[in-house]
Amino acid sequence: MNIQTHIEETVMPVPSASPTPIIEVRDTQVFYGEKQAIIDVNVEIEPNAVTAFIGPSGCGKSTLLRCLNRMNDVIPICRVEGSITLAGQDIYAPEVDVVALRQKVGMVFQKPNPFPKSIFENVAYGPKINGLTKHKLEMEEIVETSLKRAGLWEEVKDRLDQPGTGLSGGQQQRLCIARAIAVQPKVILMDEPCSALDPIATATVETLIDELREKYTIIIVTHSMQQAARVSQKTAFFHLGELVEFGTTEQIFSAPRQERTQNYITGRIG
């Protein structure tokens, strides 16, 4: 009963000025076998903005993020109900090519996971398999622009042939971001991208996220409320599989409507 009322409140229309959402999540449930991980979530993701998913561990924020590019397909016991649309198309419709979907909705993971190949090959792999270009020069251009956008070009331009695994943690994560933007996605999902990085590397990546917002829609899952406050425009607070509150970051952190949100951001739950 209680849950129901919360959700009705959260579906309240967000400020009318907001543009057409690029991703719409409607009445979505996610199950791992018998266990329900996401309960009746409704979210609209605004384009060219950073949306942060916050909440305590096990609240379902990562699960929901992974539903957005169907990374959960890999887990056999995972089942998704409801509808998730990307630019108006249901991404769980049978005619959807999951490979094409993941090209449009890229992902950056918690732990930097560059391929054990050269820096160049790391960035070039996505464009290559997606057939973005066949020409060597064009490929070099794509690699260069991607690395520049990820703010890594100056640091690695002289050693593109060296293994990506030899970079520092922060550089590796930026390499992963460069790799993700090389396939020209619309949306980039980031699953706690800074949790394995030191404060300085974190600051670099956060600045980068803010710059990337211009070209891409970014959804970031984070444990750090300060980070959510720093980088995002919209924030969604999840608790025990429900979306408790969704609004502008400013509103969530300064005037939360829900008591649970209030408790979480002040450190009383989580």
Binding site: N69, V99, L101, K111, N113, I129
Partner: peptide
Amino acid sequence: PPSIREAAFGLGAS
């Protein structure tokens, strides 16, 4: 490591 598989899937690799 599964992270390598995830990385490739995330880039749209089949």
